[in-house]
Amino acid sequence: MKALMEVQGLTKRYGGFTALDNVTLSLSDDAPSMTAVAGESGSGKTTLARMMLGFIEPTQGAVLYGGKDVAKMSASEKRQFRREVQPVFQDPFEVFNPFYRIDHVLTTPVKRYRLADTDAKAQSLIEDALKRVGLRPQDTLGRFPHELSGGQRQRVMVARAVLLRPRLIVADEPVSMVDASLRATILDELRTLNRDLGISIVYITHDLTTAFQICDNIVVLYRGTVAEAGAVERVIGDPKHPYSQLLVSSIPLPDLDKVWGADEIPVTEANAARLNNGCQFAPRCPSVMEQCWRAPPPKFVPDTQRLATCFLYDGSAVAPDDDVASVFRPPETARLG
């Protein structure tokens, strides 16, 4: 497999605090994929995203793009990387300068990357990008950020990413602020970009329902470590790790036959000290065993197309490779439209 991006043994520490611990994940270049990264608040999702985007440097490990270490790229390589790997962030308020019209966010990249040699070409590029995300150019351009709804601003950010025809979009909670109807619309657009323009997408979220609907594979992080990873049908459809089980059973489904029980869930705080040894989930785990406190569990492969870092699956094969993508299923390029 040729890799578009390789995340190799990535670790990020802030002082003595490990935000992300030795994560290895490669994104295939063979077919455009959609990969979800999920986990509770503070589990390290944004930390991982920021390293994939080259915004912060890893404490250990490396991010390779097209085989090159992002931290060691030359200025021109970095420039190409910046164009081909685009971020879409959670909070569309922060990105927009309230004093500039919406146009500014779109004309800036056109100029910076010299995407068009005439104003007319620039305009048609921008209009095309807006239409792709379901915005009417005439209703959007010329407006100020506060004159658009949160969902519309979020789509402008997707349009900005599309403009550059990136290879990879890293979307960090792109729809967490919009309601279900609009969320469905925006995510459907992301999936269309993935299929029609061949853009790979890393979708960071704590919404497992939409991850299930649009992604091929998912990585579930718990306190900086990979708890479970693999095909969404496996990990969300039939979770094996006690943390993913807790996560899936907590999805507020509009299904009265799946109402949450009254049992209290042990609370932990995202910022509490990480364990030095053993499984990070051990303090909360309903199935915790003696050995869970002694050493971190290896990546077991209890069936196919997924791995679970949990001693409950001791006896299963151990993943042959550190790369969690080694158990991923191929992207469904011919998925139902």
Partner: peptide
Amino acid sequence: LPGIKVKQALIG
């Protein structure tokens, strides 16, 4: 609001 049983088109 999609479920997690079957994959379906997301419909806004």
